[in-house]
Structures are given as structure tokens and as C-alpha cells.
Design a protein around this nucleic acid. Structure first.
Lengths: 355, 355
DNA sequence: GTGAAAGCGCTAACAT
DNA sequence: ATGTTAGCGCTTTCAC
């Protein structure tokens, strides 16, 4: 180092101090087995005394190992929530530590448990170094987790988790709180008598209702702070835009005094056509999640508020953090990582993606 | 790579293809002079054909150069805005690329131009590889920037900038918009007749009023959307807490109908004692910036909203981005980086620091 | 102007 | 169980 006198300790220094070879030091540090307890002690001591930290650059330069990470997430179309999650993973894999990490993404149909089980089997066959998944089918997820543990394969949860399992780490948002925050923002400084909650029929058929915590958070807040407010519900179908417009028109014809609207799932953009067709200065619309289409609605002024986390960052960090744990065989700094809930309005949508 | 067949091209491949040695390839890539135009051409061509990208790990492993970055920012006490900025820099320096970057932080007194000039002189003497500073004294900053340009030393702006200069990049927030957003949130769904803007006397003595854009943004919004609203102003003194309580008590005795309060600088926490002593359910308080003390006020429910950016992240990214540019001798992806304006309420303060 | 060669700190295969 | 050694891809002297 040109301007720097003292240089950090290296494996060599540690080996010398401990009176063993560099190979042994390496084995001790990464627990690759085949060393005596005596050496272990002396190496550990030398490390502590010298404040030795491995040089990550040298490490990943020398390492010829490609770490395989398998991801299991729901199927997605471009622009979906899970598409953003996927992007974050891809991005992290590309950027991370000398990029010697390989990523295999498996998707499943959330309406079909079997597809999930299949994905799990495929992953097991790949013999990955680590697995990241979300947890929507409890029993199947538990069974899969146990298989992984048997193989000594670490796994992490993204978005949703199962508390009792031995996962390495979790990244997600507190959905219940999210719902509460949404309700608070929607009714801020107002004393609404009624409001409209739009849902997609899908929610009902769905074996696991992933949106429930958020809806409950929303409902609980309303009950606590606006007990007199009546919550109307209209169900729409994602595939039938014209039909939906009609449904909403019908609703508002009957309930002209409803000005507050929300959807607790990530697809508030489904209301776009209706909102465009029926401008109303008194209306206040709040949605969730930073889908591109949702952000566009914000910019266009069709909706007023979005409660969200930075979806791609959530998965980016999850993989980065998890990969560090797996590669360096260590525990995470924090096991349960609840990401921050952001509030977006037309005035601060800009630069949201510049994180 | 264990599971990976194709491996990336190396300097060696490039050298071979170009029919020169690895040394020459290196010289060409980093423009270290002493190579013929003919070699340059062939090397560049080989690079393009092989899609060669330098291996950052190997690069910083082999490099014995310590890059020195000098930072010039205002003096700060623990918990200040500039303390957070400083933390971000320190953190980035520690984390970044094999950590062969050295950081020298110089501070100056914003009330004293000479101290700024001195800091600049000190930095010039250090002959740093790059400089990061904020711009509050226009002429002096310009003079300094020109000296740097003469030395061929790249520089970046943090927080504030001078547009006409040849800075490499800028990281900061759009203060004017910030003020507007604050005003919008404070008056959301309300039709206030009056509100209170608290300022610190400091603003007046100060040669450069760094808070002006934000105040103007705030004022402009009010004029556009609430032209009838009267904005009262009370000046307080940071060093005289008891006196300030009295000033505010006097004000509210005379103006009992004022319920909205704000301060456009970063120190809304200065109101804490008053707010604690005079609880009022009708009151709405909005502040700016994520100072620890401000966040505490939010948690305590003393204030309702904070408009902010993630201060430490702003400087973290600035140094990281700038260091990459300097070390790799390249232009930034984006020159002016306006960071996102976050909205914090008591319901979403949690996890804000987990970015 | 160019090439050769000695590392940078670590990993992993191979000896012992 | 432990030591030895050949690289990983790049930088940087030093000769020519």
C-alpha cells in the first residue's frame, strides 16, 4: 500500500504464529474437517491476536467453486410482484462477490400444490448449496425443509416464512402492519362513513390466501379508529376489464357517497380503466406494492398513495445476505429482516428506483 | 468453476489475441501511457471480440495502490445531519472493494469562510485521488474546484452542488421539492387558515442560507394550494431551550387556533420539550430529515410526519459510486443523483435503518 | 514502447 | 491430521 504502513495479517502470519501450515489454518477457519483440536485452539488464538480477517478478494479469486443457489417462487408474468423479486435475485447474483454464484429459479403455480412439490423435488436433485423460497403451503414446505436439513443444505425464506423451521434468514415485510398503515393513510384526517374495498375473486378460490394478513391489518385498524365506517366489498376479475368497469359503475351508482377506495393485494392498477373513465376530485385511492403499473397510476394521479417496500431490493438483499452466510459458513447478523414500509405519493414517486 | 463450463476471457487471452504481452494490455486499458497506437487498436479490438471485462477481485488483490479520498464537510456534533453523512462515508470506505481506499475527512465552520478555504488548502496538499465536498460558499468552491481540475483531481458534490462546474457526480435531494412535499403532507385533506413555521435565528446570521430552497418549496406550495393560509414565524435559539418554550407558549396563547407546525431545517427535535409539555390532540407537526432525535420524536408521537432521505445511504452511495469512477477511470452511470424522498410516520419508523 | 516475471492472499488438490 | 504447492487474474517493477 502506497500510503499505508501497517498491513493486515494474512493466513501466512496466522500459520506462523500458530506454528502450523496455511492449509491447516484454512481448514480450521472454514471447518473443512481434518485437523486436531490442538491446532484449532492455537489457530483461533492466533487469529484473535492478529485481528485476522480473510481477504475476500483473494478468497473468491482463488476459489474455483461455483455456489449454486436454488430459488422456488410462484410463477409470474412481466411486471408482477414476483417478477420484481426475481429481478432482485438475478441482480444480486450478477453483482455479488466475484460473481461465482449460480442461480437456478424454479417457479410453481400457487393454485397447485403439486407444482410446488415438484419444484421442491427438482431442487433437491440439483443438490444446491443454498435454497431460497417463500412459504405458502405449510405442510409441504415443512416436509421440504426437513429434507433440506437432512442434506445439510441451508435455506432462507423470502416474503413469507414458517416460524418453527430452522431457516437461516428471512426477508420480508410485516404484512399486517402494512395493512394498518394503509388504513391509517387512507383515512388520515377524515371521518369516513363508508369505503370500498375491491378484491379479486381469486382470493376466494385460492387455497392459501396470501393477502389475508394485510386485509386483517386494514380491517383491524378500521375497527379501532373508525368503527362506524362501513366497508363495502366488490369482487372483480383480473381477466375481465370491461366487466369490472361495469361492476364498479354499478356500485358507485348505488353508493354515490363512497369516496375512499383500496385494494389490499398488489394489483390496484386493475382499477386504472375505471378511474380514468370516471374522474372524481373527491376520490381517494390507496394501493399496495411497487409494481410498475401501480407506479404509473400514481404518476398519472389516478391513485393517491401506495404503501410498499422496495420489492427488488428486498430479494437483492436476501440473496446477498444469504449467500454470504452460506459461502462463509456463518450465521446472519439478523435472522428476521423486516423491510421498511415506504409511502409513495405522486409527489415522491420519482427516484424511487434509484436505491 | 465446478459447475460452469465456459470461463471468462482474461488479460492473457486478450494479449494473445492482440499479439502483445499482458503488460501492454494493461497499459492500454488503464491508459498508463507508453504504448503505440497500433497496439492500442489491436488490444481494443481483442477486448471487444472477447467481451473481456477485468476481474475486479484480481485487480484489487494485485493493486498495491491505496486510493486517497478527501472529504470536506461542515463541522458536526454527534447526531447531526453531517454526522450521518460522515458515517455513510466511513462505512462505504470500510466496505468497498478490498477496502484499499483511504478516507480523510476535513470539516469547516459554516459561519466562517476562512475555515472552508483552509480545509481546501489542506486537501490540496494531501494530493488526493478524489475529493468529495458540499457547496455552500460559491466563489470559494469554484476557486477550489478549478485548482483541483488543474491537478487533474476528480471531485464530487454531496448534498449541494454548483451546476456549472465539472464535477464527476452529485448525490443529494431536491430540497425545493422536499419543501413542497412537506407542505402537501402537512395540509393533506385540511383547509388551514394559519400555520406556524418555526425557524432558528441562525438562519439569519448565516452567510449562506442552506435551508432556503426547502423553505421556498414549502412557501410556494402553500401559495399555490392554500393561498389564504397565514404563515406565522417564530424564531428560536438552539442553545436556549427554556427561552424557546416560553416563546412558543406566548405564541400559542395569542394564536390558539394554530394547529399545524413545522420547521424546514433538520432540527424539528428542538421542539420536543415544548411538545411534551403541551400535549394537544389537534396538533399536527411535520419535520424534515432522519436525525436520530427526530426519529425519537416520531416514535414518541410528538411529531406526525418526517420528510427525509436516508442520509447515511446517500453518502455511502456517493462515495461508492465516486470511488468506482475514480479507481476505474470511468464516467458515472448517472451524474446527478437525486435520492428518493421518504415519508416517515409513527407507523413506519421501524426498520428505516435496515436498508 | 514492450515483454517477462514476481507477487497480491487465498484455495484446493496432492503429498505425507 | 498436516504440510506443500500450483494456480486464480491482475498489477507493477525491471530489463530490454
Amino acid at each position: 500500500m502506497q500510503r499505508n504502513e501497517k498491513k493486515a495479517a494474512t493466513v501466512f502470519d496466522v500459520a506462523e504464529k500458530a506454528g502450523v501450515s496455511r492449509g491447516t489454518v484454512d481448514r480450521v477457519i472454514y471447518g473443512r474437517g481434518r485437523f486436531s483440536e490442538a491446532s484449532r485452539q492455537r489457530v483461533m488464538e492466533a487469529i484473535a491476536q492478529l485481528h485476522y480477517t480473510p481477504n475476500a478478494n483473494a478468497s473468491s479469486l482463488a476459489s474455483r467453486k461455483l455456489n449454486l443457489f436454488s430459488v422456488i417462487i410462484p410463477e409470474f408474468k412481466s411486471g408482477d410482484y414476483w417478477d420484481d423479486i426475481n429481478k432482485g435475485f438475478l441482480d444480486a447474483a450478477r453483482t455479488f462477490s466475484g460473481s461465482n454464484i449460480d442461480l437456478r429459479v424454479h417457479t410453481y403455480n400457487i393454485l397447485d400444490v403439486d407444482s410446488f412439490v415438484h419444484a421442491c423435488e427438482d431442487v433437491l436433485e440439483e443438490k444446491p448449496d443454498g435454497v431460497i423460497l417463500n412459504a405458502i403451503f405449510p405442510e409441504e414446505t415443512i416436509a421440504f425443509a426437513l429434507s433440506l436439513e437432512q442434506e445439510d443444505t441451508p435455506y432462507a425464506f423470502i416474503d413469507s416464512k414458517i416460524d418453527d423451521l430452522n431457516y437461516t434468514l428471512f426477508y420480508g415485510i410485516d404484512s399486517y402492519k402494512c395493512g394498518k398503515l394503509g388504513a391509517a393513510l387512507l383515512t388520515n384526517h377524515l371521518e369516513p362513513k363508508e369505503l370500498l374495498l375491491v378484491r379479486v375473486e381469486f382470493d376466494l378460490i385460492h387455497r392459501v390466501d396470501t393477502n389475508r394478513p394485510r386485509r386483517h391489518g386494514f380491517a383491524d385498524y378500521m375497527e379501532d379508529y373508525h368503527p362506524a365506517c362501513h366497508i363495502h366489498t366488490v369482487f372483480i376479475k383480473p381477466e375481465q376489464p370491461e366487466e369490472n368497469i361495469r361492476l364498479l359503475e354499478d356500485f358507485f351508482r348505488e353508493h354515490p357517497h363512497v369516496h375512499l377506495m383500496t385494494m389490499t393485494n398488489s394489483r390496484i392498477f386493475l382499477l386504472r380503466d375505471y378511474l380514468r373513465a370516471h374522474p372524481d376530485p373527491k376520490r381517494i385511492v390507496l394501493g399496495f406494492d411497487d409494481l410498475y403499473a401501480n407506479m404509473e397510476c400514481l404518476r398519472e394521479g389516478l391513485i393517491d398513495t401506495l404503501v410498499t417496500r422496495h420489492t427488488a431490493t428486498q430479494s437483492y438483499k436476501a440473496l446477498q445476505d444469504f449467500a454470504t452466510c452460506v459461502i462463509q459458513r456463518k450465521r446472519p447478523t439478523m435472522r428476521n429482516n423486516f423491510v421498511h414500509m415506504d409511502i409513495l405519493t405522486p409527489m415522491n414517486v420519482d427516484n424511487y428506483y434509484n436505491y
